[in-house]
């Protein structure tokens, strides 16, 4: 021992012991943080720095669409056709549903899932088919878990509920980041790259129409619909909201929505309310259109339920 240094701060033995403990401890700390490695689906820098939808120039939008196509191709092994379709002039969409005709077969629910690349596992569906007893329109008496051998069942009628595309949408008012807004053709859209997943809109919607991606959506590769649009059915990330957008990738290209095309009973009608010769104009003029769901909420839905005379 060197007496000129009476109190060494650390001798050799304690240094070795301390560093052994420290190394083991740090290794254990690193290993215990392993769950962080399971976080996938982090946005790329390009996506992170992307501008707000309404501020994107056409050139920037083309870049964004290309990035989305690349991401989908990497993930699903299939090059999609991604577009950003704009609203048409002189068009305002309205949906009419004939409660006399609906048989409650739920084909619309599954056609919607297939068209709009919704998660199959966990399950996300935009349309909820309610079964109601005859003689009542009390939603409290509605049931969506019905499993008979055959529909329609005696004594019941069916009421599919989806996003009502309100003229006065409560979901848009509560969004803190303007990630959801109403377009001029009446469709309320969501920018999935702008949504922060706070779910305020889900709480604000009186129709239970908004869905949240709790996990990364599980879409089987063979069921992916490659005809996509930015505000429509492109695959979503974990932690963002989604909902019915009247099949924006179809309707803005002039086609009918998927739920209408598949309805075996012809209960669903869709069209431009500003065109006096459209089916929906005829229905609103001539049919017993008796209900906008939860009319008293003042949301003014663009989704009308009617009966045949």
């Amino acid at each position: 021992m060197n007496t000129s240094d009476p109190q060494p701060t650390m001798d050799r033995r304690s240094f070795l012991r301390t560093s052994a403990v420290l190394t083991t401890g740090l290794a254990a700390l690193a290993a215990s943080l392993k769950p962080l490695l399971e976080i996938k689906d982090l946005p790329t820098m390009e996506q992170f720095l992307q501008k707000y939808y309404k501020e994107l120039t056409p050139a920037e939008m083309a870049k964004v669409l290309n990035r989305i196509a690349d991401e989908v191709e990497k993930e699903y092994g299939l090059r999609p056709h991604v577009r950003d379709l704009k609203p048409m002039d002189g068009v305002e969409y309205v949906y009419c549903l004939n409660l006399t005709r609906c048989i409650g077969c739920r084909k619309c629910v599954h056609a919607c899932v297939a068209e709009n690349n919704q998660s199959r596992n966990p399950e996300i569906q935009y349309i909820r088919v309610l079964r109601l007893p005859h003689g009542s329109l009390d939603i409290e008496k509605a049931e969506h878990n019905y499993h008979p051998e055959s529909v329609p069942e005696k004594g019941f009628f069916y009421m599919p509920v989806q996003c009502q595309q309100c003229k006065n949408p409560p979901c848009v008012k509560v969004c803190p980041v303007h990630a959801t807004w109403q377009e001029k053709d009446g469709i309320t859209v969501i920018d999935y790259d702008w949504c922060i997943g706070c779910r305020y809109c889900e709480a604000a919607c009186p129709y239970w129409a908004r869905r949240f991606n709790f996990t990364k959506p599980g879409i089987p590769k063979e069921r992916l619909n490659p005809e996509m649009s930015y505000l429509g059915n492109r695959p979503r990330r974990q932690g963002v909201m989604e909902k019915c957008h009247f099949c924006i990738q179809r309707t803005r290209a002039g086609r009918y929505p998927a739920c209408l095309e598949v309805c075996p009973a012809g209960a669903r009608k869709f069209g431009n309310i500003l065109d006096p010769n459209s089916e929906v104009s005829y229905i609103l003029k001539n049919k017993r259109v008796f209900i906008q769901l939860k009319e008293e909420m003042g949301t003014s839905p663009r989704f009308f339920y009617y009966f045949d005379v």
């Binding site: 048989i103 084909k107 629910v109 599954h110 969506h144 055959s150």
Partner: peptide
């Protein structure tokens, strides 16, 4: 009538 598609999970 027809058999309904699977209900929600």
């Amino acid at each position: 009538g027809r058999p309904p598609a699977p209900g929600p999970h």
